[in-house]
Simulated scan of single mutants.
Amino acid sequence: MSAFDWHRLLLNDNTPGFLAEVTVRTLMAYIVVFIFLKIAGRRGVRQLSLFELVVILTLGSAAGDVTFYEDVPILPVVTVFAAMICLYRLTLWLTERSSRFGEWLEGKPLVIIKEGRFEIETLDQGNISHDEFLMELRLHGVEHLGQVRLGILEVNGDVSVYFYERDEVRPGLSVLPPVCRPLEDHAEGPGLYACLHCGHLERMAQQQKLDCPRCKYTLWSPALSNPRAA
């Protein structure tokens, strides 16, 4: 076997005619995947449930195998697609008729911010990092938690934010990146500070050190009270 054997590199043991077969296999796999997606409906990637992602990944693997492996027959793969479609429809039927099953399968919305503070338990179990959630808030135009009445992590990973009215905004933790906000384990000067982890507010004296009474975190940031830009 010589290096840079172009026939081995491009076709190996296959004949040029196999390329036409690959084209037909790809077309058939494309049609079957397209049919499944039409059945699933028009949903974006972030709207897909965990079950739907598993189904699509499984079908993608089967479609990939049948397109270019000559020893993989087409009919068994079509059977896989048909079985997955039936399983998908059965799962949707069960989800519509049993809220408990649907909650187990897809999860449920989690309240992460309530009245300008993080809900510690849901933040810890929400499968989203603290910094990632702050980024989502910034994308919604949030500058600090005091602008937010309610923040909900939806089952598809999106974040729903409900704001206070302009005249109801209260002081809160800045959600800006660390380079844009001071992080301190003590108060540089007297004033109102927000716990970096949960958003709890404490009025602190100059050089005072304090563990957050709500979550025991030790880092603080000066609280902001700016109203939300219109």
Rank of each mutant, 00 (worst) to 15 (best):
P73L: 05
S129K: 00
I85T: 15
V80T: 08
C195P: 06
G141C: 05
F36K: 00
L150P: 07
R42V: 09
Y88P: 01
E119Y: 05
S61C: 10
V142E: 00
V175G: 02
V77N: 01
V142L: 00
E121P: 00
I120M: 07
L11N: 11
R8M: 14
F81Q: 04
L153F: 10
A205Y: 02
G60Q: 07
R138Q: 01
L94C: 10
G151S: 08
R170S: 10
K114E: 13
S49L: 10
D211C: 03
S61M: 10
T91F: 07
V78N: 00
D167R: 08
F4N: 02
V55T: 10
W6Q: 02
D65I: 12
A3D: 07
A223V: 03
V179M: 08
Q125I: 15
A29D: 00
C86Q: 01
I31C: 13
S2K: 13
S160P: 03
L201D: 05
E165Y: 03
R100I: 14
L105F: 11
L123D: 01
P109V: 14
T122F: 15
M204K: 04
E96H: 05
T58R: 04
A187I: 08
N226D: 14
T218V: 11
M1A: 12
T67D: 03
E168Y: 08
I112S: 02
E96W: 01
T79V: 12
V161H: 05
D131F: 13
V159K: 00
V24W: 06
Y88M: 04
F4H: 02
N156H: 07
H7P: 04
G199N: 07
S225E: 09
V32Y: 12
A62T: 08
L224S: 12
L183V: 15
R181D: 04
I113W: 05
R25Y: 07
R170K: 15
K38G: 03
L90T: 12
L57F: 13
S225W: 03
M28Y: 09
T218G: 05
E168C: 13
Q125R: 13
F163K: 02
Y164G: 08
P182G: 04
D124A: 15
A205W: 01
F4T: 01
R42D: 09
L50S: 12
T67A: 15
A205T: 09
C212M: 05
I128E: 03
L94Y: 04
H7M: 12
Q147N: 04
D158I: 06
